[in-house]
């Protein structure tokens, strides 16, 4: 904001710079004071409340937290693995379904219908019901070749639900790429598939990165739903701990793990977005 110092800067400009510095300082001071007042006030209200002692013992007991931490941490590793495996499968399912839905080929009509039914059904069904149905229903079929490991049943349930969401996000991205981009690709002699792969899909994915991240953060949290079919992940361990201590500190510890795990993903997306903006717009 300040002009380069040195010769040739007019008095008027020096005066403007000085005013801008004063204004920036006073604005920063206002922001700091108001933040302290609001947060401090909230803290006082909570700490002065009549039930605070009991709440602290139930939710924020340091001793309980230390005791449960190693178990939750170990169990959370399962959440991470569930998430990572499901995420890859979801991307594969979603890209396939999204492309099937946008390809203008009449020969694909039955498959397209199937893709529409899939997205409608799995976006409409609560994830917890799908987890129940897959987790208990598939093993009950007793069919040869169907997975019996809870891990894979859980991954399949999450993939089915999130694949439908992510497919629709990607489809919106693909449709948002201007038709002239298709024309330019085809005009270079690229086939439909090549144009999709090298020109349309990369632009589509860039545009929908923020909503895509939303879905993946949500997926990270929903790995906790798999506790209901008996997977011993972080929430399940916290639950067992709550049953032992008759307090909820274990849940708070588990919640912290989930929060901390989503932050790197958010920062990574921010970084990627800014980088592509810089590169492509020369900002």
């Amino acid at each position: 904001m300040t002009s380069p110092a040195g010769a040739g800067v007019s008095r008027r400009q020096l005066e403007r710079d000085a005013y801008r510095r004063r204004r920036a300082r006073s604005r920063a001071a206002v922001a700091v004071v108001s933040t302290l007042v609001v947060l401090g006030g909230l803290a006082v209200v909570v700490l002065q409340s009549p039930g605070w002692d009991r709440v602290r013992q139930t939710y924020f007991d340091v001793g309980d937290a230390k005791a449960v931490l190693p178990d939750v941490a170990e169990a959370f590793w399962l959440n991470i693995r569930l998430f990572l495996v499901a995420e890859v499968l979801i991307l594969v399912v979603a890209i396939t379904v999204a492309i099937i839905r946008v390809v203008p080929s009449p020969a694909l009509a039955p498959v397209k219908l199937l893709a529409v039914v899939y997205t409608d059904v799995f976006r409409g069904t609560p994830t917890i019901l799908v987890v129940f149905l897959i987790g208990f229903g598939v093993p009950a079929l007793d069919l040869a070749g169907t997975p019996t490991s809870l891990f894979w049943l859980g991954v399949i349930a999450l993939t089915l639900c999130y694949g439908a969401y992510v497919a629709e996000v990607l489809r919106a991205g693909i449709l948002s790429v201007h038709p002239t981009q298709w024309a330019s690709g085809r005009a270079l002699g690229l086939s439909y598939a090549q144009t999709m792969r090298h020109i349309v899909l990369p632009q589509a994915v860039r545009r929908v990165t923020p909503p895509l991240l939303n879905d993946f953060v949500s997926l990270q949290k929903d790995t906790a739903l798999l506790s209901i079919i008996g997977l011993v992940e972080a929430l399940r361990v916290a639950q067992v701990d709550a049953g032992r201590t008759f307090a909820f500190t274990g849940y708070v510890v588990a919640a912290c793990f989930f929060i901390v795990a989503t932050i790197p993903l958010a920062r990574l997306t921010d970084y990627l977005t800014v980088r592509s903006l810089r590169r492509e717009n020369g900002i």
């Binding site: 002239t180 981009q181 330019s184 690709g185 860039r206």
Partner: peptide, 8 residues
Amino acid sequence: QAYNLFPH
């Protein structure tokens, strides 16, 4: 007319 270069 509108160049239509690939922006990515």
